[in-house]
Amino acid sequence: MSQRSDVYRTSLLGLLSPAIVLSIWETAGLLGWVNPILLPRPSQIVWTLVELVANGAVFPPLLYTVALFVVGYVIASILGVTIGVAMATSETLYGVLEPLVEILRPIPKSALVPVLFLFLGIGKATMITVVALAAVFPVLISTFQGVRGLDPVLLDTARTFQTSRMRTIVSIVLPASLPMILAGMRVALGLGLVLVILAEMLAGEDGVGFRILDLQRAFQIRDMFAWIFVLVALGGGLMMLFDLVERRLVPWRGKT
């Protein structure tokens, strides 16, 4: 896992192979080895991208997608951690919720997208629900495993000092299981993004996913690639942000 952060410390050597691939792609386009309509040259794509950013056209769909994603992700994280902790600390709640969670969890969440469209109609609420549904289970399960895997001495110590249940959870259970919670949230981040893009593609009114499929169907390939690059930047940006937050919150991660 620690190698991953090394990559972001982009050394010049690391830029070498992407540069080679890009220049092969560029020359292949220039020499007409590939159909320029199907695969525009990187320089053309970059130019389109620059235009998109310069005239501001990139921002409304990007913000739309980000807003949907963030709201769904935050809801999922809060729900996942709350239910995960509840199930791990209370046998009764475990009994009540475990069968329900085990029934809902294995459903591939992408299959729920058309169901939710029928059910909630097409709109922002549906998109947010889709993201939240996809993201909640990884968070829930790794929170549960994190809390269950805690050193019993920690909890016994709290009990010795007659710490209240609430206080034990807030100041002992949550901090100690934070690495696991974050591991779940990392998985949820990728899944949530997949689902928001899918939902936008299937019935979007706006957003990056909608743009990509719309432009492909309109055969505006250069613009489509530019939007895919926007999406790559979005995905990469979110991942980096996550790494940053994680390193700040759990500085001891990967060092034990």
Partner: peptide, 9 residues
Amino acid sequence: PIPTPAVIP
């Protein structure tokens, strides 16, 4: 980091 649906088009 590319979400899979995006590579399909």
